[in-house]
Design a protein around this nucleic acid. Structure first.
Lengths: 201, 201
DNA sequence: ACTTTTGTTGACCATTTGGTCAAACCAACT
DNA sequence: AGTTGGTTTGACCAAATGGTCAACAAAAGT
């Protein structure tokens, strides 16, 4: 052992994450993971007894990180608009480097996977905005609905990249440029619909 | 031959759609499809030479129907608000009975699948709203962005049902009730942000 | 009736794939 | 040098799985 939790183990985890995310549990091959990690298949099984085992480790870690990002609510600023915008940008960036499709795909294959995750108990989006409504700082509104809207707007464009690119007749570069602005558009849009209207600009 | 394009063939297609949608290409088993269709595996191969073959047929049909719903723009009414609302409701209902996850999953596995689909050339959402903007009937706005918003709001809640249920602490019944109202909320929301504001209510 | 074409299937095959194991390797300790 | 304990791997195995085929059944022509 020693070393930072074992170098080989980490190489395996990285390789496995990559392969499972791109191919899914059913499409992933243990040999492929071993190759990606630069070790033999036998070694792979030495570290993680079974495919199931390795998969659950990866899925759990991914889910953990996802839940962390989703339920962490930045508490430095008092300005809810700024907070919301920062959250959206951060969430969107997170989704850029982590495959949400992986989560949805595997959760659909085996819904039991979710039951193994313990729920976070933290002050999150919902509680925060409910309190804002309570204090009369923002419009009276359906918070769960707003929660859903925000998640949908942040998540779907990346999930559906291939089709959107085609529908909007954009190439890779154009679409990426579009996505670069995207989170701020979402923030503008949501803030505008949440904010108590003074005089419309 | 004769019969409505062959009864057995249809049984196979139905079975294959069901199995492919729920298990994906990699997870689906030819034996499973044969069982579901009530025939032998050999017969299955008699009708469709290979798994690949059968899969592409199913995927193509699903994609065709999806594109049809997405690019059909109801032309009976002159009232854009009503049109939009009807479109959203129809699209949402369609997604209720057709697995969008299937499309995204398989498109991610093999992006080439999309190149085999020929693009529809029809008056759709984008063109219609661009003309509304041109005529000054609705607000000046970023149409591709609005297109993306609409699709995201319609699609994601069903894709992500499992997690939303958990986050919103709802059971199956509560969540379904929530979803029943959902498309109209989306319509309200979008219409409100598109409409030229007279006096705010 | 009988011949031909079209369906149907159990048995079988080749390949893939998750998983095992004994032998080799290697660093540390005595 | 020899022993020990962990690590690595090529070779191998059993099960699963997509696909084939010869034989049989059922229509459809004649």
């Amino acid at each position: 052992m020693t070393a930072n939790v074992n170098e080989t183990e980490q190489k395996i985890l990285d390789a496995a994450k990559k392969v499972f995310e791109s191919s899914g549990f059913n499409g992933a091959r243990m040999q492929h993971i071993a190759d990606e990690a630069g070790i033999s298949k036998a070694s792979l099984h030495y570290y993680f007894r079974s495919k199931e085992n390795l998969f659950e480790r990866i899925f759990h870690e991914t889910m953990e990180e996802f839940m962390k990002v989703v339920s962490t609510w930045n508490d430095v600023s008092e300005d809810w608009e700024l907070k919301l915008r920062e959250f959206i940008v951060e969430f969107f960036n997170f989704l850029h480097t982590n495959s949400l499709l992986f989560i949805l795909r595997e959760l659909n294959r085996n819904p039991e996977l979710l039951t193994k995750e313990k729920p976070k108990k933290k002050m999150g989006f919902m509680e925060y905005f409910e309190s804002l409504v309570g204090k009369g700082i923002i419009k009276e509104m359906n918070i769960p609905l707003m929660y859903m809207f925000m998640h949908s707007l942040c998540s779907y464009p990346l999930l559906n990249k291939v089709i959107f690119k085609r529908m909007l007749k954009m190439n890779e570069v154009q679409f990426d440029a579009f996505l670069a602005d995207y989170p701020n558009h979402v923030a503008d849009f949501l803030i505008h619909s949440i904010k108590k209207s003074n005089i419309k600009k």
